[in-house]
Amino acid sequence: MAKIIINQDRCKGCFLCVNFCPKGLIKKSVKLNKQGLNFVEFDSNGECIGCMQCAVICPDCCIEVDK
């Protein structure tokens, strides 16, 4: 099983990772981060396959992947 770690303070809420995760494991938060933006959250109960698509598309290099 794989997982991702999101730097939520750095996240700009572009939601590209949300759009490209094939497992639908990344969700918009309702809370705001220090920048005043809706960051994203990872559903650690889902089946992350470590495909790295979220990390590859993130313009702000906010995502690390462990596999």
Binding site: A2, K3, R10, G50, M52, A55, V56, P59, D60, C61, I63, E64, V65, D66, K67
Partner: peptide, 16 residues
């Protein structure tokens, strides 16, 4: 588990 994706040394850890 090992890290398969992270920021590399050539990119500073700074907000853009």
């Amino acid at each position: 588990m090992k890290k398969t994706f992270k920021r590399c040394q050539s990119l500073y850890d700074l907000p853009a």
